[in-house]
Amino acid sequence: MAVAQSVLLLRKQLAELRRHPVDGFSAGLVDEDNIFKWEVIIIGPADSLYDGGYFKAHLTFPQDYPQRPPKMKFISETWHPNVGVDGSVCISILHEPGDDKYGYETAAERWLPVHTVETIMVSVISMLCDPNDESPANVDAAKQFREDMQKFKKNVARCVRKSQEEL
């Protein structure tokens, strides 16, 4: 049953996004037969360092979605304090529901079944606009973000260029 629910929900969201595309990103499936793996392309938000970039990312949904959050991974190279070196996105709403053992996040900040692809994307876009260097996934990037903004900008600019070339 649970599988059926997730499939239905994802299909509904996909159809909705196709019918009414939301500004800032576009979504599709990596493989038409697998509804659990999505490919999204995020357009670098204007007035951020990522302006002009097109960042490809994959969303992998668990079978018991929406009880548990999907995993998001950037395929395009990204340089961001909250994106791991391997591309995995680290934002609070993508963390497994429940309390944080370190007490950094509250349960309300974490995954809730009401989140949709759209709300995830909105969070990711706001993450791009406003990096959080307090809980970094990419420590080097966070350090650079704090201490050497110029180098950080340069690395971001390079990622933006690369993402443009790769499209």
Binding site: R18, P21, S26, L29, E39, I43, D51, Y54, Q164, L167
Partner: peptide
């Protein structure tokens, strides 16, 4: 920046 508009459509698979 240019480019912005045209590319959106392309990506939809």
């Amino acid at each position: 920046k240019k480019k912005k508009k045209g590319k959106k459509k392309k990506k939809k698979k």
